[in-house]
Design a protein around this nucleic acid. Structure first.
Lengths: 414, 414
DNA sequence: AGTGTTTTTTCGGGGCTCGAAAAAATAGGG
DNA sequence: CCCTATTTTTTCGAGCCCCGAAAAAACACT
């Protein structure tokens, strides 16, 4: 039973709404905010006056500068960069990247490091993360007290509570509660996010026209990951980050997957699988640990050049992705797809077989509404999504506190 | 951008909350309602006083009669049966079933009819539905004006707006806007629902302990259908009723499915597929139109008796369902499953292969939390779910009007 | 009949949003 | 240069809503 709405929640919810409207629109006028939120001008006036008084918003020129209309000119409201800061930590294969971002979304400090994540001990991995965060916090440009939230993204499976990494392909270690560790170390609220989910968050922000309420972001990298937005909300599994598209079964008992099982989509479409097929190594061959981006690009170039095992490998990848998407579309209906990652640059090699496969499935019947977009570089997307995620937390939980979030369940006080 | 909360919405939302609490609890006292909704006693007192004045609620003895506690005894609040009525129409293979249900959920009039849905013309099918509804509305026991809502459930695909049947296995006809037709004919708001979704709604009501926030109802019948509840809400596709579990691809290019494609789960686990395999007819054999429940039960009996093609047919069904569920669980994480329909009575034959298959998938890693329940008779479930769905509409849209529902999107008034 | 206990109602207070009207700020026109 | 039309923003009073505390109600127990 969902919980009733208390009277005090009203203002908090509407405050959050106003902040969200400003973050989305950039520098909207009060009138624009009233229009998008559906609240009255008087309410917007009152709330924005509060927010300005608290230093969260500041007045400035409106975004659409040119519009010289008659009448009193609009006053733009923007987020105050100094109101807060957040930190993003992106941990990917052999690479650790950290940034501090001001409340308006601008990067104010960053650092990147190469690591050998596959061989590092648990302690070393945690230690590197803690150390890099500490170094950024000690940056003289940063006011430590203003850093209100850390969002840490990792390839792999995270828990629903956004506290821990359960499993990741970038390290043999499992069950590391990064969020708890960083929180204990620095006293800053921290969440643990799945990289593909962050890609989806960033895509929506980048192109809200195309990626609005329902869309799919697929990471074509060493493994296959997915971020799914349904009905305007990030879709996660009920226990974990879910959306393990790469481990849907394409062929029962088929090719050996990195996860140890057989026939997963990833075992045909992951970089290691394309590599394995291109080398004609046989489907039982143990997946290689890593294939460099350069190697993959060379593979794609060869596949474009001549009709050999390389081209066939991409065809098989397309087929697996197509059948997988077809099954997915049978469940959720077709939606726009973004292909992200190094193999997205080879999407021309993948697409024909993919479309052919999808046409064989129930999802293919609405194939007109399936469109693909590609983005070869996943890291900037993940960083951007992470920043948005952390900033949204600040918007909601610090500057409009007390609003019941998804996680707080209604309890029966017996 | 989600829309702000207007001041007037508050009361409406909380009214809806109180009605929902009463419907769920049966005859709760005001104190119990206050506890479940989290609202104060004074608010509950005011709202329930309104609702009693409007004839929606009525006082009576509390549900837990025995509890002779000290102090002022609780006064139970119950839904007034006469406050409204709803109608359920369930259209399934060769069968049409209608019931009128009072506001408290009791059946007050019903009628069932055998039809030959597979051969009927579009006009005849619509005509039968309209006629049976008209007859029930003319029942002298029924006050036509009190019938506030009709919910019509059908096997097959419906659109997200709950207006039309897009496709159904029970008739060659497609795209029948039943909701619009009945609404135009009788002037009563009508919705079109998917049968498996209604099963899920009913399961949650029947056993809220087991079927709470995340669960799956699978219909094992001539075809394979699914109703999915995630995070406490019925999950539907973005365009259609979605959840076409039966048409996820089990084996690319595999057995011929009733939908014309190949390798769907249904092509191994639907009644016609089990029948086809038991008769060793080959996977390319055109699916038969119908297999009677008696024939299926005989098949299951034979399979239990001896290790022959019948047993192998059930094994294959289990394997397909297991791999399908495995892929589904990879996306949404494991959840309790209810197997409904005639083949659920043969679940003992299906389960071993199903569990073996699921253990081969990514979803199998949390296999301890996967549990199956069976219910051989789907019709009562569908009817019950339909009634709940219609009553909930009355609760929300008639007795607490103006609450923004999921369907009403926030519009930018530019 | 009195006392204790629990439920329900009443009442006043504080907040919130809204609509209307006023104030503010500017462009255009004479 | 001043006045008017226009648009944005603020102000103000009214109406609701919810809450907490206290009072009232309704019973069991002694």
């Amino acid at each position: 039973m969902s919980v009733g709405i208390r009277h005090d929640d009203l203002r908090r919810r509407n405050r959050a709404m106003v902040i969200a409207a400003v973050r989305q629109a950039g520098r909207p006028s009060r009138t624009e905010i009233a229009a998008t939120t559906g609240l009255s001008h008087s309410t917007i006036s009152a709330i924005s006056s509060d927010l300005i008084g608290e230093g969260i918003l500041a007045e400035g020129k409106p975004s659409e500068a040119g519009a010289l209309k008659r009448g009193r000119p609009q006053v733009g409201l923007g987020l105050t960069p100094e109101a807060a800061a957040v930190m993003t930590v992106v941990l990917s294969l052999n690479f650790l990247s950290v940034a501090v971002i001001d409340y308006a979304g601008q990067v104010i400090s960053e650092e990147q490091r190469r690591l050998d994540t596959l061989t590092m001990s648990r302690e070393a991995l945690i230690g590197e993360c803690v150390a890099i965060v500490r170094r950024r916090l000690e940056d003289p440009d940063i006011d430590v007290r203003s850093v209100a939230r850390i969002a840490l993204a990792i390839q792999g499976i995270t828990d629903t509570e956004a506290r821990a990494m359960l499993w990741s392909p970038i390290t043999p270690q499992t069950d590391i509660a990064f969020a708890d560790i960083l929180e204990a170390e620095f006293g800053i609220p921290t969440t643990m996010e799945n990289d593909c989910n962050m890609m989806a968050v960033a895509l929506r922000r980048r192109d809200p026209e195309r990626y609005r309420d329902d869309f799919i972001a697929i990471l074509l990298s060493h493994g296959i990951g997915m971020g799914l937005v349904l009905k305007g909300e990030l879709f996660t599994g009920t226990h974990s980050s879910g959306g393990e598209f790469g481990h849907m079964i394409h062929r029962p008992g088929g090719a050996l997957c990195r996860c140890g099982r057989r026939g997963c989509v990833e075992a045909y479409a992951g970089n290691y699988a394309i590599w394995r097929n291109a080398r004609q190594l046989g489907e039982d061959t143990e997946p290689v640990a890593d294939v460099s981006d350069a190697q993959m690009r060379a593979l794609a170039a060869t596949a474009r050049e001549r009709d050999g095992p390389e081209r066939e490998a991409y065809r098989k990848a397309g087929e697996a992705l197509g059948y997988g998407l077809g099954s997915l579309f049978a469940l959720i209906d077709p939606a726009p797809v973004a292909m992200v990652g190094v193999s997205a640059a080879a999407f021309d090699l993948i697409e024909p077989a993919l479309r052919e496969a999808i046409a064989q499935t129930a999802g293919g019947q609405h194939s007109e509404s399936i469109s693909f977009d590609t983005e070869p570089n996943e890291l900037p997307l993940i960083r951007e999504g992470c920043a948005m995620r952390a900033l949204t937390f600040v918007d909601q939980e610090i500057f409009a506190p007390g609003v019941p979030t998804k996680s707080s369940a209604g309890k029966n006080v017996a």
